[in-house]
């Protein structure tokens, strides 16, 4: 007669079991400089041990032939604050999806009406946008920038 352990395991899968108290001052407000000078806690699952190192010691824990896999995702500021080129009315724009190079779907909150053909200026004039289309609350905007789009953002 087998005992079904699944309900027992499930009972332990309560969210409150994954709580801990963190003193607020331990929330890092600045990155470590240099990057690899941060601390490294090393956990060995087999030995059930915990060691304290510095991140650059990672070289000692990786061996020839190991494959290190990294995620190259880049953060971009999805929210842009701008103004209408002619009236100076404020525009709060949230980028949703890049359709093609420099052309984005976005949500816009702004003063007054936002019509097709509206020109918007961002920041220090390095970035301009023109509203090209509008459909069900989603605008499409074409950016023109002085330099590389990602860098200007």
């Amino acid at each position: 007669m087998g005992i079904d352990l699944l309900p027992l395991i499930k009972k332990t899968m309560k969210l409150s079991n994954f709580d801990y108290e963190l003193p607020k001052e331990l929330i890092a407000q600045e990155p470590a400089t240099p990057r690899d000078s941060s601390k490294l806690i090393v956990i060995d699952r087999k030995k059930q041990t915990i060691e304290h190192k510095v991140f650059r010691d990672i070289v000692d824990f990786l061996n020839k032939g190991d494959l290190l896999v990294i995620n190259n995702a880049k953060v971009f500021p999805a929210r842009l604050l701008g103004k209408k080129e002619i009236t100076g009315g404020k525009i709060d724009l949230l980028l949703i999806e890049e359709m093609e190079k420099d052309r984005w779907k976005c949500l816009i909150q702004g003063s007054g009406s936002i019509k097709k053909g509206l020109n918007i200026i961002f920041g220090n004039n390095k970035l301009k946008g023109k509203i090209e289309d509008y459909d069900k609350g989603i605008y499409s905007i074409k950016f023109e920038c002085d330099g590389k789009f990602d860098d200007v953002l």
Binding site: L26, A28, P31, K39, L40, I41, I43
Partner: peptide, 19 residues
């Protein structure tokens, strides 16, 4: 242990290696 040793937490914080 990390809290006791004043590790720095979250995005700009310290690291963990699990092997």
């Amino acid at each position: 242990e990390a809290i006791d040793r004043r590790y720095r937490f979250y995005s700009f914080g310290d690291a963990m290696l699990i092997r």
